[in-house]
Nucleic acid binder design. Structure first.
Lengths: 118, 118
DNA sequence: GCTGCAGATCGACCGCCATCGATCTATGTA
DNA sequence: TACATAGATCGATGGCGGTCGATCTGCAGC
């Protein structure tokens, strides 16, 4: 995995010893960091996190009409949050007649999971 | 774990069958969701995610003077991001003379990790 | 004391985001 | 065809967040 953060040379110190051990740098490249941060950002709202929680727990697809009454916000707001989650690739949807069913996109959280575990 | 999201009764349908299976609800309580969403939100920025990545990788404590030149933003901005991470309980700091050393707070990510794994 | 440095804080700017009411689209039903 | 419903979209609003330059706070050395 390439590191695209260039290291600036260690700045000179007036007189004293160096402040710390040799330079450290992230082994997470910028693009990867941006992808994972986008996932984390999408999960960074209590409503969206609970939406994902419900969808993950419920293996199948869940109707929006089941999701909306779970929260103390209006229907457009829930729709907005679902859209954010879909843009982040975390969930996907499927229309069946009058209703829309949402489900978690299987591999969406994988990269972030692996990083978070270590 | 208590669920403090009250379920509103299923709204009546004009004529047809119900849209889907019985009501689902999050088993993640609101307070827990807010805690984990706060952690996710703190990780929802590429710079902060890379900061955490460096600190986790480097088991010991890392001097701020090592962290600042890793990114293309100014020193106040890095300081701000470190403050956000500290407010979220993800990192902590320790001053030694002229320099400040940051390190990951061990159990900070635990609850979020456990939820994310399943 | 004075000077220099590391890092935190402040104030301002600007853009993004959560939320709402209103409206639009598409589907099903009479 | 007309109407009702599920859900998405629009426009507005208020607040939060990332970034910067400037400044402040401590610490070390002279």
């Amino acid at each position: 995995m390439a590191v695209d953060l260039q290291l600036s040379p260690k700045q000179k110190r007036g007189a004293g010893e160096p402040c710390c051990e040799p330079v450290v740098y992230p082994d997470v490249a910028r693009q990867q960091a941006e992808r994972m941060a986008a996932v984390a950002k999408a999960l960074g709202d209590p409503i969206r996190l609970q939406l994902v929680d419900v969808l993950r727990k419920h293996a199948g697809k869940v109707c929006v009409c089941e999701l909306t009454p779970l929260f103390d916000v209006g229907q457009p707001t829930v729709s907005h949050h679902l859209k954010v989650l879909r843009r982040a690739g975390i969930v996907d949807s499927e229309r069946q007649g009058l209703w829309a069913y949402y489900y978690v996109h299987p591999d969406a959280l994988e990269e972030f999971q692996h990083w978070l575990i270590r």
